[in-house]
Amino acid sequence: MRLPPFQYLEPENITEALSMMDTYKDTVKIIAGGTEVINHMKHRLLSPAFVMNIAKLGDLGGISVLDHEIVLGASTTLKEIANSPVIKEKCKAIAEAAFQVASPTIAAMGTIGGNILQNTRCMTYNQSEIVLTGLDSCHKRGGTICLAVKGSTRCFSVYQGDMAPALIAFDAQCILRKSGATRTIPIIDLFTGNGVQPFSIGSDEILTGIIIPKQDGTSGSAYKKLRIRGSIDFPLVSAASVIWVGADGKITSSRMVIGAAGPAPRMVEEASLAIQGQLPGEIDLEALAGMAYGLTEGADNLAMPGAYRRKMARVLLKRAVQEALEDVKRGI
């Protein structure tokens, strides 16, 4: 498969990269590992005029452990994150999510920044050109129809990233830079909820890093992923949970997130409120799980039926919470 023509940009440093973004804006596509962009370009889902490689910008890689936070450079590979002792110890769900992305070869190339900013997916969109050619253009391909949900005026594509739900569960922030400005926003705010344009990142901005705040108390976390095969597959639905317990054994705070159930990960805030101050033994897991159900979209546009995926959001959330609580018990 040939790649469509493009001009290759190789900035020497972040300042140059930002200035290129300022110049080329929408016409440039950033790659670091390239595992998604190159794939989509081969499928003709993308044909950017410029491709800018930021993999070698020294200041975008690596995991730094600071007093109050852990900072992940945007070009840190998923493999580094999955294997990082500090991530495994402090943020198990994040390591678990990274470990379950695609396959080891992809995880060795793919970066955390790229994984977060991966495009939403749909069986009627992520197709080879030879199949798409006969189908009408859907919302995501610039048309006005939805091929997955007949008659829909909006796009039902699904955000299938593994990392974002786990990061959101840890209340992670992302650093967005553009020429002359930097902003830090919660990762959940990166998402627009619109399948056509899933991210709020500006066309002149680069995601440069992720900040995972440290929090007091004993915590446990877990990431659960529904997929058909034991590797390669994107999540068909996923659940991440983090639970903090105070010295009295009561839950001080918790965050639960459902992924791959719509165009953006969803926080199950109702569930966090419900268990605040409870002892782990008092939690009504079934009730919590039920709260996930309403947040899921379940269109029939991925490898398993939407109705089934919705039900599984419930099961996965329950299991993610259960496992996080077990971690807490073990004093992790």
Binding site: M123, S128, R229, S231, I232, F234
Partner: peptide, 12 residues
């Protein structure tokens, strides 16, 4: 609709 190794679920 699933003409790729990603979408066609051949066992790993």
């Amino acid at each position: 609709k699933n003409g790729t190794f990603l979408d066609y679920k051949m066992p790993t």
